[in-house]
Design a protein around this nucleic acid. Structure first.
Lengths: 238, 238
DNA sequence: TAGTGGTCTAGACCACTAA
DNA sequence: TAGTGGTCTAGACCACTAA
């Protein structure tokens, strides 16, 4: 019989341990840059197993609260960062979640040599021929997101046989091409004449741009620049 | 002696198990919406302990790949999402990381009643008197971020005694006010006349805005709208 | 109410790396 | 090279919740 069941007091979970340590960091009992006690000592102090402390610490490490090094021990991160989790759904799902009808229009598609910014996004040594697709995502018939995408034909030769005028490259890739690295960039642009025409809005409007590049190993898969429409917001919960 | 050490083959870690299951999802061996085998069966198949599968599944769950329910089992999320982690450092640290000199200027500060958008960001039932601060963060003497902040005096009465013309409210809050909930919003705006004047740029320029609100329990702490300067990008690695 | 996931524990051994 | 974190395992018991 465990001590907890003897006393009738619920055992503390690793989340409880994590919260307790987090409180100590926030209350400055453990200050930024400070070294924390060893997991084993914290376990003894809080009356739990070392593995429970380890699980709690792993979470605090992932959250950017502490920094852990073998032999070096655990220390409170000297430069606090705010860490947030962003969920970026497939555009179709996003539109449907707003209760709108989703539509998709391929504007252009063909093989082209990567221009400098695209080669740079992928970190390519030399330009390469890739599949270049421009497409529009619609919500209730109105332009929603303008997408400019490059897909590596070396990494994804099968995509040459997919009819991208019906289904977006986004959906095909999500379903068929696993990636293990992703880069995201968010920034604002003034709508160029071409963007304004395609999105049916005035030139110069401030638009949020989401750029995403993915790789499998060192092989580039796709890089896409999604230009959103006015009022578009990226939201985070936590 | 374990089987692994007998054969000389490294035992698989929970990350390996996670990757194996992830591969199965990506290769559509487990399709979106499909129910996965029980942890115990996967453990047996892959030759590891159930707790190792549990750890792997916890990670896949956090990453939005699968959805788990007691008794209901584990299923592949029907709507794949791209989940990314964003680190937002303190502005001073961000400026210094770019190798620039950090500067801070308080533009205005005073008690005011929250206007509708601020009350809405906090989910307040009624307007409230709060501390309102406008400030400018500088990089090498040039405007970098324009900050418009409201701090709840009910939740943070101590801040009334802090000299915010020297140190930013951001830094004081990070060090003294733990929060347990945060909302983030990102969007683009055209610079208004007032913004353009303060940031020394042309009216209408497209600017990335970062809005953040924090709470401790149900009590609002602060809400801040940070207007960045042209060229500013939010980046994610993973 | 039976079945599945959630968590804990103790002990073992491994893998880094500061000293 | 000694010390600290990283991970595994087997078994136990708990906590939800679909059926």
């Amino acid at each position: 019989m465990t001590q907890a069941s003897k006393t009738g007091k619920a055992r503390r979970s690793w989340q409880d341990i994590r919260d307790e340590i987090h409180r100590r960091v926030l209350s400055r009992r453990y200050k930024p840059g400070d070294k924390l006690p060893r997991d084993e000592d914290i376990a003894e102090e809080l009356g739990c197993a070392r593995s429970t402390v380890q699980r709690a610490m792993q979470d605090l490490n992932d959250a950017g609260i502490v920094e852990r090094k073998r032999k070096g021990g655990t220390q409170v991160r000297p430069d606090p960062v705010t860490r947030a989790t962003l969920d970026i759904p497939i555009t179709r799902v996003e539109v449907e979640a707003r209760g709108a009808r989703y539509g998709y229009q391929m504007l252009a598609s063909g093989r082209e040599t990567t221009p400098a910014p695209v080669a740079a996004a992928f970190g390519l040594a030399a330009p390469e021929e890739m599949l270049h697709i421009e497409a529009l995502h619609l919500a209730d018939e109105a332009p929603f997101i303008l997408e400019d995408r490059w897909v590596s034909l070396a990494t994804c030769p099968e995509i040459a046989n997919v009819d991208l005028s019906v289904k977006s490259a986004n959906e095909w890739l999500v379903m068929h091409k696993p990636y293990d690295r992703m880069d995201l960039r968010f920034y604002a642009v003034n709508a160029s004449g071409a963007m304004a025409a395609r999105l049916k809005l005035r030139e110069g409007a401030a638009l949020l741009v989401i750029e995403r590049s993915t790789w499998i190993g060192d092989a580039p898969i796709t890089t896409v620049r999604s230009v959103t429409t006015p009022g578009y917001q990226l939201l985070t919960g936590s």
